[in-house]
């Protein structure tokens, strides 16, 4: 009798985020005819692209059982640098690589702190969160910066009919997915997250591996910063604040464990990011009280995490070794 219940429940729980996503889509679709239109869905994906990209970056870090709290600050610094350069008349061809460089430098700083100096990732990235935010505020002199239109076109221009932000985020996701599933480096990330000491004993260069992961997260944060910037068109002093939490939430919603070694970017993190964005998008379309957005989003994330831990609990319970059948 137990077995039939397992058979029915497990697929449900395994695809909890997907089911939740379907319910959210269906719910908003029923409440507003505007929600499920092609235009809105494409808009939704564009909106979600920034979260998806930073989520991909943090997924790599989480897979190694680390964490990156400095993402929001890196986004801010990248945006601030972009603003400075763009307002100073630099062409996009200079600005964009510069931003990516900023992200990687910050990532490298985190990597240095974590791998060379042996500081806990939580504390190290907490420190660079402060340093980054302060540095960004200094760059902008705590004033909002409006960017030239060239930046906004980044968000609207289309490549073979596909909005550029989607091309970029899609590219990042595709590369990340292939790296994680098909390359030695990707598999080694899972190994490090599962058992760091054993990975070292197995002859992996765990320092270089971890360093790469933090640099990649910084790079993703910078790309995510550009994508956000392209939609907002301005850098405010609070740009990027708490986005690290959104990124972590997207990753965890997508089934990535906070304890390392389990998860992935596709469909995982992407689905998590889109789910978070659809809730927000749906509430906007319904004209809901804007102050309610965070409440609903928090509720949905809580639900997804609850389902995931219920799944793990039941799996552990059912998976208990049977001595005889």
């Amino acid at each position: 009798m137990n077995h039939t219940r397992q058979r029915h429940l497990l697929p449900l729980l395994n695809h909890a985020t997907l089911i939740l996503f379907a319910l959210v889509l269906a719910g908003f679709g029923l409440l507003s005819p505007k929600f499920l239109t092609a235009a809105n869905l494409s808009h939704l994906l564009v909106q979600a692209s920034s979260t998806a990209v930073i989520g991909v970056g943090v997924t790599f870090v989480l897979l190694t059982a680390g964490v990156d709290l400095s993402i929001g600050s890196i986004m801010f610094v990248a945006a601030a640098v972009a603003g400075k350069l763009a307002l100073g008349g630099a062409p996009l061809a200079v600005t964009l690589p510069a931003i990516l460089g900023v992200g990687m430098v910050f990532g490298a700083l985190n990597a240095l702190l974590v791998t060379r100096l042996g500081i806990l990732a939580f504390i190290a990235t907490l420190g660079s969160l402060y340093v980054g935010r302060g540095f960004g505020l200094w760059l902008t002199q705590t004033r909002a910066m409006n960017l030239p239109d060239s930046f906004l076109t980044l968000g609207t221009v289309r490549l073979v009919g596909v909005p550029l932000p989607l091309v970029i985020s899609g590219g990042v996701v595709a590369v990340a997915h292939i790296v994680l599933t098909r390359t030695p480096f990707g598999r080694q990330i899972y190994a490090v997250g599962n058992h760091l000491a054993a990975a070292r004993k197995a002859g992996l260069n765990t320092r270089r591996l971890l360093a790469t992961v933090y640099i990649f997260s910084g790079l993703c944060a910078a790309i995510g910063g550009i994508l956000s910037l392209a939609q907002l068109g301005a850098v405010s002093p609070t740009f990027g604040t708490n986005r690290e939490f959104t990124a972590i939430a997207a990753a965890v919603l997508g089934g990535t464990s906070l304890f390392g070694g389990r998860g992935g970017v596709f469909p995982g993190t992407v689905l998590g990011a889109v789910l978070i964005q659809s809730v927000e998008n749906g509430l906007v379309i319904l004209n809901a009280d804007p102050y309610l957005y965070p409440l609903v989003t928090a509720g949905i994330i809580f639900l997804a995490v609850l389902i995931d831990s219920t799944r793990s609990r039941l799996m552990a319970h059912w998976g208990q070794r049977k001595i005889f059948v």
Partner: peptide, 13 residues
């Protein structure tokens, strides 16, 4: 590495 399969464990490096 309990999260990887047999082949991956054998040839990880």
């Amino acid at each position: 590495f309990t999260n990887l399969d047999l082949a991956e464990n054998l040839f990880l490096s």
